[in-house]
Simulated scan of single mutants.
Amino acid sequence: MSRPESDLPFFLGCPVWNCPHWAGQIYPPRTPRSDWLNWYTRTFNTVEGNSTFYALPTIETSKRWADEAANGFRFSFKFPRTVSHELALHKTDREAAAFFDCLRPLADADRLGPTFLQLGPSFGPDRFDVLERFLRRLPTEWSWALELRHADWFDESVHERRVDDLLRSMQIDKVLFDSRPLYQSPPDDHIEAVSQTRKPRTPIRQTVTGRSPMLRIVGRNRPAMADAFFDEWAPTVAQWIRDGLCPYVFTHAPDDTRAPELARRFAARMAIEMPELTFDIASPPMPPRQMSLLDE
């Protein structure tokens, strides 16, 4: 069942679409789980599909996702960890092919955004040749993005220039990861404390190597704490849009409950930066009783 396209002039979403605490934010209260994706795609126009990092869906499930998503919606799935971390891009033909089979129904339905390869912190420039061979074997009809975490990829010298040049030559986007909002102060709660032990602190870059710059930004469970960093990023994302690029922005929170509010705050900041464009994000309808109370 297709839905109208989003009016957002860029792609904005969360790391998941299936959080049970989003009733009233994304889904009307008491919405069955089977309808959560459909409702999510009425609100945001992309999702960072982290689930494929841990397990692949069946092809039938991928077809169902494609059918449930709104017109213009794009899934941006992560490569399985067997490919990126366990095998570290070595002898991955079977695992990669299985992943591509899952993506194909989404691509055929025009629901596939950039698929991103997140490499672990131990995968450094000494394995550049392995990375290049892997990237050159990717299907050229699809869009790809790469996230690097080893510190030597950010040397502002030979290694960084080399990988940036490779990505530009192949029109593969470089994932830009910003965890500064998460680490700006000690954690406020246990969930933030755990998140601060897990999220990397890679150097900040605004490097564009393809047509769809991808920003992943990690906020706090008090969403307003990310506002100063949104102030920094909004002019950059606006310039990407003005340059004819197609940015993807994903807002993370230690507690997924807060991710939609972070995304809405980012959209509101973009509306200030580009008042000539529309950055409205839909809200789910309220139950009849709540609506009648507002009318009283």
Rank of each mutant, 00 (worst) to 15 (best):
H90Y: 14
P28V: 10
S6M: 12
R104Y: 09
S122H: 13
P187S: 12
D231Q: 07
A234K: 01
L138Y: 03
I172D: 03
P28E: 07
D178G: 01
P254V: 08
D295R: 13
A282M: 05
P80I: 01
M270I: 00
C246N: 15
Y40Q: 02
T92N: 02
V237M: 05
D129C: 01
T115H: 04
F128Q: 00
V47L: 06
S283M: 13
P254I: 06
F75I: 10
P28G: 09
P121H: 00
R289M: 11
F75Y: 15
F230P: 05
S84E: 06
S122W: 11
D255S: 14
K174S: 12
N38S: 14
T46P: 11
Y54A: 04
D67A: 15
R242H: 08
L245F: 11
I272M: 07
Q290D: 12
P32C: 01
F53L: 05
R74Y: 10
I241N: 00
H21A: 15
D101H: 07
P32H: 00
A238L: 05
E5F: 07
T61A: 12
R198W: 08
V218M: 10
R42E: 13
L146M: 00
P32V: 00
M274W: 05
S143H: 14
T257W: 15
R81S: 08
A70S: 15
D110N: 15
L215A: 06
P181K: 08
L103D: 04
Q25T: 14
P288I: 05
S195Q: 10
L138D: 00
L131K: 09
T92D: 09
G120D: 11
T115P: 01
L294I: 08
L106E: 06
N45M: 06
R201C: 10
E132R: 10
A263D: 01
P114V: 09
E147W: 07
W153H: 01
P235D: 06
P125G: 02
S185V: 13
I26A: 03
W39N: 12
E156N: 14
E147N: 03
C14H: 06
I204P: 02
P200T: 04
D178P: 01
A253D: 09
I204F: 04
D152H: 08
L245M: 04
R104D: 13
P288Q: 07
S122F: 10
E156Q: 15
E48G: 08
I281K: 02
P181V: 02
E132H: 00
L106W: 07
P29Y: 05
P186H: 06
Q196C: 10
Y27R: 14
R33M: 05
D164W: 04
F123L: 00
D227L: 15
I272A: 09
D110M: 07
Q118D: 13
R220E: 01
E232G: 09
L148F: 03
H190N: 14
R216A: 06
T207E: 09
T202L: 06
F53K: 02
T278R: 11
P247I: 05
A263S: 04
A226D: 09
S157Q: 04
P121G: 07
V16R: 15
M274P: 07
F116M: 09
A98E: 15
R180Y: 07
N38G: 14
R81M: 03
R211I: 08
W144G: 01
E296W: 10
D129T: 11
T58P: 05
A267H: 01
C246D: 15
D126E: 15
D165M: 04
D126F: 08
F53T: 03
